[in-house]
Design a protein around this nucleic acid. Sequence first.
RNA 1: CGGGAUAUAGCGCAGUUUGGUAGCGCGCUUCGUUCGGGACGAAGAGGCCGCAGGUUCAAAUCCUGUUAUCCCGACCA
Length: 478
Amino acid sequence: MSKEKKLVEEITSMDEDFARWYTDIVKKADLIEYTSIKGCCVFRPYAYALWENIQHTLDSKFKELGHENVYMPMFIPESLLEKEKDHVEGFAPEVAWVTHGGGEKLTERMCVRPTSETLFCEHYKNIIQSHRDLPKLYNQWCSVVRWEKTTRPFLRSMEFLWQEGHTAHATAEEAQEETIRMLNVYADFCEQYLAIPVVKGRKTDKEKFAGAVATYTIESLMHDGKALQSGTSHNFGDGFAKAFGIQYSDKENKLQYVFQTSWGVTTRLIGALIMVHGDNSGLVLPPRIAPKQVMVVPIAMHKEGVAEKATEICSTLKKTLRADIDLSDKTPGWKFAEYEMKGVPVRLEIGPKDIENNCCVLVRRDTGEKQVASLDNIEETVANLLEDIQNNLFNKALMHRNEHTYVAKDYDEFKNIVDTKPGFVKSMWCGDDACEAKIKEDTGATARCMPFEQEDLGDTCVCCGKKAKTMVYWGKAY
RNA sequence: CGGGAUAUAGCGCAGUUUGGUAGCGCGCUUCGUUCGGGACGAAGAGGCCGCAGGUUCAAAUCCUGUUAUCCCGACCA
């Protein structure tokens, strides 16, 4: 048990039961409400505000890079879904089918989109004729449905919100560049905004997206030592183009197939935020993504001038920051606990004594540290504090990941680590599916990715002992 | 999809073994006193006991089915 005092008694301690801690937070921080529909939750305002912040940041980055937003239908006719063989095999087991409409049986059933490659392909076939039409850089924000067997809020639900970018390019090289470019956008976003360090790399063939030539991923490590795929970017080569007949005339007037990519992040990122930064008092949100960055709590509000002064400070802060004030007649103690549970990065206390001294008390959520600050330049003081919290959260998460990343040289060591130490295991791999399958069978760990930053940990595969090709991050995943 | 658990007021729970008036704590409403770590008093409101069948004079309680949630495994963002 950590030395910090647990301030909120209603939350199960994470050391005691991590899974319950997670569901407690999701409920107690007013993020999610369950519904009568299996695996589908209500995103309450606080959770949706988080998603909106994620959206706005990523969306402007996408646009900066030349992408345009579109919207595709949510239904996909069976015949369309079936056009690309690997793709349909990958998704068919988990799609929801619509068989009736308007009281009548449909002549062809339609699935609710589990992802929209097929729709984009059908569209691209119609609108791409010339090399002048390329590249096409489209993105859509929507929800998709996958019929999951077990569900958890944010991490795995039947319907989830996401963004899916779909691009078409003239050459394989351009498609590959786009694939990596967008993976980097995700990685930078996770690290700079969500304060979540990620490992960038490629998925093994076994783990790659149905229909892709190559799948790239960013992997992050949760507080309990389990891995979470936090974003993916796929290079499709010309496989979909051939299946759907997406061709353009090049400068020599020869017909060529386009090369495509797709990439996405989901509301799962909110789950990652909870599990990377949260503590036993509740959520801890990085300032750059927090819906409220500062919460002003007036003390002894009935006293002359307190509410007015607090309101004035709040409006000053609001000019440059996301600030709010709680003027309800709850006690200060209640408010402290409430905003800690919700992970608001900074609390500003202001009472009669402070007003006399032209100061206030600032309390940071990440460390609990309190400081007295002058009301002169309060915006700047708070802004600096937020910056500090942002950096501290990232560094803490990075340190946690480093402390929970192990190296295994032989199979006994590997099994022992996976069995006893939650976290990533780095080891060499021969590239054979059989070893990957055996490792999963024996230990429950899967290949998270083949990182771009390769390290030479030896010449032999950790599993079979034959010549190794790649260093792989392994781990148990959500 | 297997194995286990749960479903009673907004939340957390008791009551179910042994059928017989629907309970407790928190929260909520009103008024007053409070206010620097989940305040106190007084008076109130709030229930088809998850849903559907069955047994019975009588069901939260017994039986059957069903749905949702949680946990553990197998599949997946």
